[in-house]
């Protein structure tokens, strides 16, 4: 009596082939994640420089997850930075290290004044959590120098 089984080896072989392709995609996806395509990592981290102003940030962020922008101010300049309001509106839990001495609003920017030793380069770290998904564009200004940057926030 033949085996009563509803098999289909042709279909199965095709499926095995698709399965191998899927494994390849999964491997590429995980490697991309490892290198920071979906968050922090070497691919994500980047620096922008405009004259003496330097900022370091991650291109790829995750929704509601901590991120930071490091701003290096050149020596001999007034330690004031302006961050575009449209950027501030799309982030939450913003904190600065060192903490700003004064904060005010001017020219569609939130401006922060810091008490730092102006004879040396100062590092200002802005920590925040993005509260909007998708493209996040921002501008940082210092002494009339503007740096535009964009980040992508994954859901």
């Amino acid at each position: 009596m033949p085996l009563e089984i509803n098999d289909d080896i042709t279909f199965q072989k095709k499926f095995w082939h698709i399965e191998r392709v899927f494994w390849g995609i999964l491997l590429l996806f995980t490697l991309a994640a490892l290198f920071g395509v979906f968050g922090k990592g070497p691919v994500s981290e980047t620096s922008h420089r405009q004259e003496n102003l330097n900022i370091t940030f991650n291109r790829f962020l995750r929704y509601g997850n901590n991120s930071k922008i490091e701003i290096i101010l050149p020596p001999g300049s007034r330690p004031v930075i302006g961050i575009a309001k449209e950027f501030i509106d799309k982030i939450d839990s913003v904190s600065f290290t060192p903490a700003p001495e004064r904060i005010y609003y001017a020219n569609n920017q939130i401006r922060y004044i810091f008490m730092v030793d102006e004879r040396q380069p100062s590092e200002i770290v802005v920590s925040f959590k993005p509260t909007a998904r998708g493209l996040l564009k921002g501008t940082i200004e210092h002494n009339g120098i503007y740096i535009n940057f964009s980040q992508f926030v994954y859901p």
Binding site: T30, F38, G39, G64, P155
Partner: peptide, 15 residues
């Protein structure tokens, strides 16, 4: 707690 993190963690475990 992002969806992206869950997807990456699950994918890595399966891989």
């Amino acid at each position: 707690n992002s969806i992206t993190n869950s997807i990456i963690v699950i994918s890595t475990l399966i891989l």
